[in-house]
């Protein structure tokens, strides 16, 4: 195998940084969900990369669990987007004021 562990970890760090940028800058609900997805994928990449280089099957098992839980998270997130859009006619999180103190 010609690729080393550190290559995959560096790509994962880059994806994590891009995801944090999106989460802190964007105020659009759907784009924030994109950023969360990117961060989750960076974590999965890390799990599978370490599982390959140890080698141990636990990393792949955890990655599969993580993918399934992320699917549930996206389903709930998209339902929340639809509810918020119906209530506020907007998907900008700055307009969602009913939970503000």
């Amino acid at each position: 195998m010609s690729n080393e562990l550190i290559d995959f970890v560096i790509v994962s760090v880059a994806l994590l940084a891009i995801g944090i940028y999106g989460l802190s800058v964007k105020r659009n609900f759907i784009r924030m969900l994109f950023a969360v997805e990117i961060i989750i994928n960076a974590a999965n990449l890390n799990l599978v990369a370490f599982a390959r280089f140890l080698p141990h099957s636990g990393g792949q098992t955890f990655a599969l669990f993580s993918i399934a839980i992320a699917a549930a998270e996206v389903a709930v997130g998209l339902a929340l987007i639809i509810v918020a859009y119906r209530m506020y006619k907007n998907i900008d999180v700055a307009n969602f004021r009913s939970l503000k103190g």
Binding site: M1, N3, F8, V11, I30, L33, F34, E37, N41, N44, L45, V48, A49, A51, R52, Q60, A63, L64, I67, A68, A70, A71, V74, A75, L78, I81, I82
Partner: peptide
């Protein structure tokens, strides 16, 4: 990347769940 890491099962799961269903769900929303 998962295929490069010799984990074809996780790669297929990723394609089926993420590219196949989550991305399509997001597009419909």
């Amino acid at each position: 990347f998962f295929i490069l890491l010799d984990s074809p099962f996780v790669a297929l799961f990723q394609i089926a769940v993420y590219v196949g269903s989550i991305a399509v769900l997001i597009l419909f929303t």
